[in-house]
Design a protein around this nucleic acid. Structure first.
Length: 593
DNA sequence: GCCGTTTTCGGCCCGACTGTTTTCAGTCG
């Protein structure tokens, strides 16, 4: 079984290697594009190829050559063209090309002139002052390369969505701007009172699960003063750039933040441009061009016959840009060039779920196991957030590190919930459990106690090394228990820490459908599991999703926003999500009869 | 290498910034 990501990786590497070789840039772009298409395609290419029912070339971006290579990789796990390239260009050069400020040309130069093969080689030569003699490089370039080698060791690269969002909000507060997306909706009149206002763009605005760097746009008067203040933010480790229209810093956490000043007239265009994604923008520009426009961060311009810019058409808001391109407004979470432009053209974009749609939270812990808040505190916190129903789902006995509960302790908790419930008529507290699925698929608690619960959530916390076959058999056995309602964090992945266990997503959806088990979208920032790509299959396959926080503390109830934004990235509407429904409908949706 | 309201060849998104250069190449987003 070859997953889409591995196929995409081969194409990424082919593109990088061709680039070092100095091959045709458009050919390189094709491979990059193909990698992106494969990586984000909702179905497994392995399955597509084996079933043989889909013509790969019908997928945009995949032609004769790449289709052949996909088939080759699925059949043999290898690609001859890739192997041949690695004979011509050492694979270790790819790591050099990853260094900030070092691209394919410099990598090729280092390799051909200095016979450099590894980052360590580069470091030695730079330290010895030997790089500055190369044509096109000087003392400063040498210093920059050395710095980026050191930074590479110091900073891991990407950051969790939650960390990036916190950093952005902290900086906006520091700058004296109101944080949050809503700032974009404000008219210029509202901003006149303040000196300026600021809004995050980039992958943070699209709510990607991990963030490389944070882009913030500011507009208004005296933006250069804002940038001056920005580079003095207390959390700054180093200032990377400091000009009139742009500032760039590295925080002590390693996160890079770029601040750009734009004119109010161009704010919409800049927001569109810097929100990306790159692939979305490329597709949008291509469309603009066909319609006789050109588009950049300053606005949408009409073009004359010679291709010269003629007149400014739009740019104050994003809405007017999409409108001029005869598209529905595309929410940032969808801007990944995964079909959103085609859907916007047909006016068939989904009405994405909103945070306010969610009425319940079906996964949370208390001090009874590994939570930091008591039952009463969790309920109060949920009430305070306006939730109409929640489920208390503490761990079960086999998860010993979390002080998991046995039957007796759970019985006591059931009584405690019954007692507590009498105090409230504005929130319903479901009695639940996050019951372990044991290695062989049995559940960690007997039916005699499960049948007393309102919501049985099940999940995997052990034996992550099982084969796909073992995992799927394990899940089928668990799902066949009639008390099981929700399968939590279905792939078990932890961002930056642990890959998913060997779950076959297509089969998982089929099992969920067969046994009427809902799949969870876990809102913990390091989980976001199921992810955006997987979620998109849920409506097609008729499997309801439940968005839960898996809170281990009262403040974590706010993680719901990350779950909702991930759901939006998965094109989900409120109707696809069980816990947007009123309590009674919800109970009906998750009931199996 | 892909694609087609320039349709089987000839295009392919575009601008800022930086450092090295005297007019531009490389990198980045």
């Amino acid at each position: 079984m070859v997953d889409n990501k591995s196929i995409a990786e081969v194409f990424h590497e082919i593109a990088d290697l061709l680039e070092i070789k100095g091959d045709n840039p458009f050919r390189i772009r094709s491979y990059r594009n193909a990698a992106m298409v494969v990586e984000t395609y909702p179905e497994s290419f392995d399955t597509l190829v084996r079933e043989g029912t889909t013509d790969l070339q019908s997928i945009s971006g995949i032609g004769e050559a790449i289709s052949g290579k996909i088939k080759e990789i699925v059949a043999s796990g290898d690609c001859k063209a890739h192997r041949d390239l690695l004979k011509q260009v050492p694979g270790s050069l790819l790591e050099i090309m990853q260094l900030q400020g070092v691209g394919p040309k410099t990598t090729a130069l280092l390799w051909k002139k200095m016979h450099v093969k590894t980052v360590e080689d580069v470091e030695k030569l730079a330290t010895a002052g030997k790089l500055r003699k190369l044509p096109g490089l000087g003392e400063k370039s040498e210093q920059k390369i050395l710095e980026s080698i050191q930074n590479r060791k110091k900073f891991s690269g990407r950051h969790l969505l939650s960390q990036a969002e916190e950093a952005a909000e902290e900086i906006l507060r520091y700058l004296g701007a109101k944080p949050g997306e809503k700032a974009t909706r404000k008219s210029s009149r509202r901003t006149a009172g303040v000196n300026f206002f600021a809004v995050p763009a980039g992958s943070l605005r699209r709510a990607r699960e991990t963030i490389g760097d944070v882009d913030i746009l500011v507009t208004g008067k005296k933006c250069s003063a804002v940038i001056d203040r920005f580079v003095k933010f207390p959390g700054v480790d180093s200032v990377l750039a400091h000009g009139d229209t742009k500032g760039s810093v590295r925080l002590k956490t390693g996160l890079q933040i770029d601040l750009r000043a734009v004119e109010e007239k161009s704010l919409g265009a800049a927001l569109q441009y810097f929100t990306g994604s790159k692939d979305h923008n490329v597709a949008l520009r291509t469309r603009a061009q066909k319609m006789g426009f050109t588009i950049n961060e300053y606005g949408l311009f009409a073009v004359d016959r010679k291709g010269e810019k003629e007149k400014w058409v739009a740019g104050r808001t994003e809405e007017e840009i999409y409108e001029k391109l005869k598209l529905q407004f595309i929410p940032p979470e969808l801007r990944e060039n995964r079909g959103e432009i085609e859907a916007a053209e047909k006016k068939s974009l989904p009405r994405l779920v909103e945070l306010e749609d969610v009425r319940g939270d079906l996964h949370m812990h208390t001090t009874e196991t590994d939570g930091t808040a008591s039952l009463g505190e969790m309920v109060e916190a949920a009430r305070g957030r306006g939730l109409q129903y929640i489920a208390i789902t503490d761990h079960t006995q086999s998860t010993r590190v979390a002080n998991g509960m046995d039957e007796k302790r759970l019985e006591k908790q059931i009584q405690a919930i019954d007692k507590l419930q009498r105090q409230f008529n504005d929130i319903t507290v479901f009695k639940g459990t996050e019951c372990d699925i044991l290695a062989d698929g049995r559940l960690d608690l007997p039916d005699s106690i499960l049948e007393q619960l309102d919501v049985v959530v099940v999940s995997i916390h052990s034996h992550f090394q099982q084969s796909t076959r073992e995992v799927m058999d394990r899940l089928e056995r668990a799902f066949s228990n009639p008390h099981v309602r929700i399968f939590a964090h279905p792939t078990g992945r932890l961002l930056f820490h642990r890959p998913a266990y060997a779950v076959d997503l297509e089969k998982l959806f089929a099992l969920a459908k067969k046994y009427k088990v809902c799949l969870e979208l876990n809102s913990q920032p390091e989980r976001l599991d199921l992810n955006d790509v997987a979620l998109r299959r849920a409506p097609e396959l008729g499997v309801p999703i439940v968005i839960s926080t898996d809170s281990h503390a009262t403040q974590q109830l706010d993680y719901l926003k990350f779950g909702v934004r991930t759901a939006r990235r998965g094109w989900l509407e409120a109707k696809h999500i069980a816990n947007t429904q009123p309590m009674k409908t919800f109970l009906k949706t998750i009931s199996r009869h």
